[in-house]
């Protein structure tokens, strides 16, 4: 029979992973929804990491300056949208490679975020209030794990909304047409350029919101190391989720949980392979891509014109 301490210890790992899924998964969720929207319109945005960092910095700075974290959230979305607008302009030019533009915007965005964010590294800004879903339990770890970010709930709502938009609305059909068969969409009188620009901008604004979660909720501070590549992994995550917004939600929870395995094990005293566990989300992504990709057919669900230059 287990003693109390050891049974809480084993539970501690599970609670840690749950907390990681909910808190650490939120930026994944918002960024991958942004990437999903962008890719549905036929473009790849590898620069969302830049939008995420810019969003995190703007959110923290605006929250610090105004004392209202929700102003920070709005600032994050705006900063992300501006980043996206520049990216959209760049990739709308002929002969500009999507991927290279993404890397350029990643460097530019993170440079700008680090530069403008220097004064905000020390002071503490008001944080977003959490939704305490763990009130029924007396375990402090569980209370902390179930303190939900408002942006997580917003993200869930956006995921289902986005699925509805893609499946059942005129706008969604328009976006899918532009992403699947640009020539046909053009024949219908849909503006390819306008649709893609809008999708990229809104997608980057969502990535900015993911940044706001990082700096205003969890881990809840602005540092230059605040993102561990969530913006870059979003591209892989969307492939994993087969361009389905609701699957993005499940995939984000999985990735957030995977990211928390190492730290949770360390918290209960198991530190073997701590650094290797840090690689688990990346290994997971790679394995998923190896298993789901195939050289002979395009992936089911992939937008037809994705990544082609048209």
């Amino acid at each position: 029979m287990n003693t109390d301490a050891s049974s809480i210890g084993a539970w501690g790992v599970l609670i840690g992973i749950l907390a990681g899924a909910l808190r650490g998964g939120t930026p994944f969720l918002l960024v991958s929804l942004g990437e999903c929207l962008t890719e549905k319109s036929g473009k790849i945005n590898l620069g969302l990491e830049g939008a995420l960092l810019l969003g995190a910095m703007s959110a923290y700075g605006a929250s610090y300056a105004t004392g209202n974290p929700w102003v920070g959230v709005a600032a994050a979305a705006l900063a992300g949208a501006l980043h996206g607008a520049l990216h959209a302009f760049l990739v709308s030019r002929p002969k500009v490679n999507d991927i290279a533009a993404g890397i350029a915007m990643l460097i530019f965005g993170s440079g700008l975020a680090f530069y403008l964010g220097k004064p905000f590294i020390q002071p503490s800004a008001p944080q977003l209030p959490g939704l305490p879903l763990g009130f029924w339990s007396s375990l402090p770890q569980l209370n902390a794990a179930l303190l939900l970010s408002p942006l997580f709930l917003i993200g869930i709502a956006i995921a289902f909304l986005m699925r509805h938009v893609f499946c059942a609305t005129r706008w969604g059909l328009q976006i899918r047409a532009v992403g699947d068969a640009p020539a046909a969409a053009r024949a219908l009188g849909i503006s390819i350029h306008g649709t893609r620009t809008l999708c990229i901008i809104v997608g980057a604004a969502l990535a900015g919101l993911g940044g706001a979660h990082l700096s205003l909720f969890y881990p809840g501070a602005w540092t230059e190391a605040i993102s561990s590549g969530q913006g870059l992994m979003a591209v892989a995550l969307v492939i994993f989720a087969r361009w389905n917004p609701v699957h993005c939600l499940y995939a984000s929870l999985l990735f957030g949980g995977a990211q928390a395995v190492g730290p949770s094990l360390q918290a209960v005293g198991i530190s073997t392979g701590y650094y290797l566990w840090n690689a688990s989300p990346y290994v997971l992504t790679l394995v998923v891509m190896i298993l789901t990709c195939s050289p002979r057919r395009t992936l089911s669900g992939a937008p037809g014109a994705l990544g082609s230059s048209s």
């Binding site: 590898l46 991927i99 870059l232 591209v235 492939i239 891509m289 190896i290 990709c293 050289p295 002979r296």
Partner: peptide, 11 residues
């Protein structure tokens, strides 16, 4: 396997 080289190398 047709895995995208950019993302694989990044990971």
């Amino acid at each position: 396997r047709g895995v995208n080289e950019t993302i694989a190398s990044l990971l």
